[in-house]
Amino acid sequence: MAIIAPGTRVPDFRLARSDGEPFTQEDLRGTTTVLVFYPFAFSPVCTDQLQVYDEVVGEIRGQGAEIYGVSTDPTYSQQAFKDKLGVSIEQLSDFEPKGAAARAFGAYFEPGGMTNRALVVVGPDQVVRWSHLAANPGELPGVNLIFDGLAATAA
């Protein structure tokens, strides 16, 4: 599955916020958005990932962008994960239909039945500006890649 390419308008999708309210393509309008697709709440690599990304949330917002974590975990699990780590990155659930949004972005790992590890930067016009799919779900992309992606967006 290929990750969604820069220049592509985002597909219609529906994720769930922690309070169960929907998060759709309309929520991307007007703000640069970083979507962080990760496999599993509470897994070791995803724990490292959210902890290191949380370190630079202020810098990401300083670039005028917002960041969200996306996985197929249900909202309650995502909230517990967020609370346990003490991070501020809002979580979006792709639980039902499972992985539908991730598949639409090319960020689903079929062999594992899970969200792949991918980063997508979407411009305020809902067009993808930059994307990155890890070589495998166990590989953790550094935050430097997010800032490279945001720089490409600004260019």
């Binding site: 300083g62 005028g64 962008a65 430097n144 800032f147 490279d148 945001l150 720089a151």
Partner: peptide, 11 residues
């Protein structure tokens, strides 16, 4: 436009 970040890739 937001100021450029100095957190982009570097060796």
């Amino acid at each position: 436009m937001a100021p450029a970040s100095d957190l982009g890739s570097a060796p």
